[in-house]
């Protein structure tokens, strides 16, 4: 339920890239959301829509790229893609694994309408 806070942070970051005193509209914002980040994409899109609704960004599209949860085994160095968050190496079944991807919460790029 913190998707609205996350949407607000995205908007604040986008504002940093808009030229001052110059009306440029933002076509889209692309974000990366990890599968293990506790963010529901639909709720994030909804939060973004609500927060931008009466602003210059009301037509801005939020594009969400999901990033799978992957772990690297510290014992055998195998990289596993985890469909469910059970943290075991798929090769040697060790629990001694570190997360490589899947916790991302990032703004990747912004597209402006010139």
């Amino acid at each position: 339920m913190h998707e609205v806070s996350i949407a607000q942070e995205i908007i604040e970051i986008v504002k940093d890239y808009l030229p001052k005193n110059n009306h440029v509209s933002v076509k889209s914002v692309r974000v990366e959301i990890g599968e293990f980040s506790n963010i529901l994409p639909d709720a994030l899109s909804f939060g973004f829509k609500v927060l931008t609704n009466i602003t210059d960004m009301k037509d801005t599209e939020l594009i969400i790229s999901k990033v799978p949860l992957t772990v690297k085994c510290r014992d055998c160095e195998n990289i596993s893609i985890l469909d469910e968050p059970f943290f075991f190496c798929h090769s040697c079944e060790s629990a001694n694994v570190e997360i490589l991807t899947g916790t991302e919460l990032k703004v990747i790029e912004i597209e402006l309408n010139d």
């Binding site: 996350i6 990032k106 703004v107 990747i108 790029e109 912004i110 402006l112």
Partner: peptide, 15 residues
């Protein structure tokens, strides 16, 4: 159209 690369953590201010 112009594309701006951002690559910033959404929670960077909090962190």
């Amino acid at each position: 159209m112009s594309l701006i690369t951002v690559e910033r953590k959404i929670l960077e201010k909090n962190d």
